[in-house]
């Protein structure tokens, strides 16, 4: 009475193979999730030091116009690309250009970013970056109150 089922062993083999595949997938996914939970630094900070190299820059992305790096708005000067590569991957360059600090305070700020914001070790680049910042964006004297500047004069209609 029993029907002949010649495909049976093959099917079983296929199931076994699929089961193995699924288990491997499950393992990979759980490994990825636990990496996320326990060692996010490994996943999100694989490049510990981004090295400087002006030759790395690719065409339009690093175009300079009137002494300004077009993409970021940073002043073109010694150390520009090290700053672009290390300082604009988490926040935009406007956070840099808005802020004017001394060497000591930039170093403190870098330390703060490393301790709390996942900034990587900068190695010898730290001096290049801080030199660039204090040379091109030095603190300005504002005193207790600045004069009103850049007033946009217009006729007041009634």
């Amino acid at each position: 009475m029993r029907k002949d089922r010649p495909t049976y062993p093959e099917t079983r083999k296929l199931y076994r193979w699929m089961y193995g595949l699924v288990m491997i997938l499950v393992l990979l996914v759980s490994a990825f999730i636990s990496m996320n939970i326990f060692f996010p630094h490994w996943l999100y900070q694989s490049e510990t030091i981004i090295t400087s190299s002006e030759t790395n820059s690719d065409g339009d992305a690093d175009k300079i116009e009137n002494g300004i790096h077009v993409r970021t708005g940073l002043i073109d000067a010694e150390g520009l690309m090290v700053v672009v590569q290390n300082c604009t991957s988490c926040h935009s360059a406007s956070l840099i250009t808005q802020n004017r600090m001394t060497e000591e305070r930039w170093n403190e700020t870098i330390k703060w970013m490393q301790e709390t914001q996942n900034l990587w070790e900068l190695g010898p680049n730290q001096k290049v970056i801080v030199d660039y910042l204090v040379t091109n964006y030095p603190p300005m004297k504002k005193g207790r109150r600045m004069v009103l500047k850049d007033v946009d004069w217009y006729e007041l209609e009634d």
Binding site: Q98, N99, M101, T102, M140, K141, K142, R144, R145
Partner: peptide, 12 residues
């Protein structure tokens, strides 16, 4: 914040 001297860190 932009008016403080010495300047303070953060959005101006």
């Amino acid at each position: 914040r932009s008016e403080f001297d010495p300047p303070a860190k953060g959005n101006q």
